[in-house]
Amino acid sequence: MSEIDKRNRLTEEPFTYQITKKGMVMIYFEGKQIKMVNERDAERLITKIKEVEDDKIKIQLLLAKITGNFKRGNEKLGKNNKN
């Protein structure tokens, strides 16, 4: 078992990306946009993605790392708690 992806979430491919004409990278998690990467960071990310383009798990790992720890489990509280 990999120490990085203990729950095997990356095999489900939750992350997708889109490269715009301006060179920005839009990152999506389960269909929702969560991050836009600009300029140098986008260039570095595109280069890394091209290096591992045959390995979907490595691409998922790159996208997960650049998004950081965005999902904490309390996202539904805002939707359901309408006080």
Rank of each mutant, 00 (worst) to 15 (best):
N81Q: 10
S2D: 15
K21T: 14
G78A: 04
T20G: 06
E51H: 11
I59P: 01
F70L: 14
F70Q: 12
P14A: 03
I19H: 01
K76N: 10
L45T: 08
I27L: 02
K82G: 00
K58Y: 04
A42Q: 09
N38E: 11
G73F: 01
E75F: 07
L77R: 08
K79H: 07
K71L: 09
E30K: 15
G68S: 00
K48R: 13
A42H: 08
M26E: 08
I4C: 01
L10R: 08
L61I: 10
Y28Q: 02
E39F: 08
M36R: 14
R9F: 13
N80Y: 13
I59G: 00
K71W: 03
L61N: 06
R7L: 10
K58C: 02
I27M: 02
I34T: 05
K76R: 09
V25I: 14
K56C: 04
Q33L: 12
K79W: 05
T67P: 01
M24V: 10
A64E: 08
V25Y: 03
E43Q: 14
K48D: 12
Y28G: 00
E13V: 14
I27C: 02
G73A: 01
N80S: 14
G78S: 11
I66T: 15
I66Y: 02
N8T: 04
L10W: 05
M36L: 09
I27R: 04
N69Y: 11
F15W: 12
I59L: 00
L62D: 05
K6P: 10
L63F: 06
E39N: 15
I4E: 10
I19Q: 05
K82P: 02
T11F: 10
F29S: 07
N83T: 09
R72Q: 09
D5P: 09
Y17M: 00
I27N: 02
N80R: 12
V52H: 06
G23P: 09
R44W: 04
K22L: 14
E12G: 00
D5Y: 03
E3L: 12
I4V: 06
K71E: 03
D41N: 15
N8D: 14
K21N: 15
N74C: 05
A42M: 06
D54G: 15
T47K: 15
K79D: 13
G73T: 10
Y17V: 03
V52G: 00
I19R: 05
S2Q: 08
I27Q: 04
N8Q: 07
I66H: 05
P14E: 04
M1I: 14
K48Y: 01
Q18S: 11
E30Y: 14
L45M: 09
P14R: 09
E12K: 09
F15P: 06
K32Q: 12
D55Q: 10
F70M: 07
